[in-house]
Simulated assay, not measured.
Amino acid sequence: MIKFGYTILYVEDVEEALAFYENAFGFSRKFISTDNDYGELITGETTLSFASKKLASQNLKEGFIESSLEDKPFAIEIGFIVENVPEVLQKATSFGALMVAEPVEKPWGQVVAYVRDLNGFLIEICTEVKM
């Protein structure tokens, strides 16, 4: 059996990233290493984690493409399911998230909006898909 355990975002400042997600989305801190190079948030079944770019460089000797607000977002997003998209969107932007796309209702009834976090990662804020 395979279980999807976590997604790790490589950031310059792990403490800053944790604080942003705690404040903007209300997640709770699960863990941060004593050297502040790695941290985790309680986000439900799957953990959202952050590793410093320094730590990532130690693990990936040939390097990686860094996320940046100056560049277009990667072809990947993290999605947060919420009941009230405009409310969560307003809170996230008040803590520094950059608006990408205002809420839109999709043909299947889901409301979807997009922001980027302080490190440029793309976040979908959406209602649950009703089947």
Rank of each mutant, 00 (worst) to 15 (best):
M1A: 15
I2H: 14
K3M: 12
Y6S: 15
T7R: 08
D13T: 06
E16H: 14
A17N: 04
A17L: 06
A19P: 04
F20Y: 04
Y21C: 04
N23T: 12
N23W: 09
A24M: 08
A24D: 05
A24Y: 03
F25Y: 00
G26A: 05
F27D: 10
K30D: 13
F31I: 10
F31K: 12
I32P: 10
S33M: 02
T34A: 14
D37V: 09
D37G: 12
G44Y: 07
T46Y: 04
T47E: 12
L48F: 07
S49L: 00
F50R: 05
K54M: 09
S57Y: 11
S57P: 03
S57H: 03
E62L: 08
E66P: 02
E66T: 11
E66N: 10
E66W: 03
S67G: 11
S68F: 06
S68Q: 08
S68V: 11
L69M: 13
D71E: 15
D71R: 15
D71Y: 13
K72H: 15
K72W: 14
P73D: 10
P73I: 08
F74K: 13
F74Y: 13
E77V: 10
I78N: 09
I78T: 13
N84D: 14
N84G: 00
P86L: 02
P86N: 06
P86G: 00
E87Q: 13
E87Y: 06
V88D: 00
K91D: 04
T93D: 02
T93V: 13
S94P: 03
S94N: 09
F95D: 03
A97M: 09
A97K: 08
L98I: 14
L98M: 13
M99E: 14
M99F: 12
V100Y: 06
A101D: 13
V104W: 10
P107C: 02
W108A: 09
Q110W: 00
Y114A: 01
V115W: 08
V115R: 06
V115M: 07
R116G: 07
D117F: 00
L118E: 10
N119C: 05
G120N: 05
G120E: 05
E124D: 11
C126N: 08
C126V: 01
C126W: 09
C126Y: 07
T127F: 06
T127K: 00
T127C: 03
K130C: 11
K130E: 14
